[in-house]
Computed example of a mutant assay.
Amino acid sequence: MIALAQLMVLIDATAFNMAVPFAQQDLGLPAGDMTLIFNAYLLAFGGLLLLGGHLADLLGAGPH
Rank of each mutant, 00 (worst) to 15 (best):
V20R: 01
L36K: 08
G53N: 08
A31H: 10
G53P: 02
A56V: 15
G53I: 00
F45Q: 07
A3E: 11
L7W: 03
H64G: 08
N17I: 06
Q24R: 13
A5I: 06
V20D: 01
I11D: 03
D33H: 11
F38L: 07
I37K: 00
A19G: 00
Y41P: 00
G60A: 15
G28Q: 08
G32Q: 12
L55W: 06
A61C: 14
D12A: 09
P30R: 15
G62I: 13
I2P: 02
D57F: 08
A3I: 09
P63E: 10
A31P: 07
L29C: 06
L36E: 11
A61Q: 14
G60D: 06
G32E: 14
A61D: 06
V20F: 02
Q25N: 13
N39Y: 04
G52I: 13
A44I: 05
A3N: 05
A23I: 13
L43V: 11
A23Y: 12
V20Q: 03
I11C: 01
D26V: 09
N39L: 13
M1Q: 13
A13G: 08
G53A: 15
G60T: 15
L36S: 10
Q25S: 12
A23S: 11
A13L: 02
L55E: 07
G28L: 08
A19N: 07
L43W: 11
A40F: 09
Q6P: 05
A13S: 10
M34C: 07
P63M: 12
A15H: 02
N39E: 14
L59S: 01
L59W: 14
G28D: 01
L4I: 09
L49D: 06
T14R: 03
N17S: 14
F38K: 15
A5R: 06
L36R: 13
H64K: 13
A3M: 08
G46L: 06
I37D: 02
P30K: 15
L4S: 09
P21D: 12
P21C: 10
A15V: 00
Q24F: 05
G47S: 07
A40P: 00
F38I: 07
N39R: 03
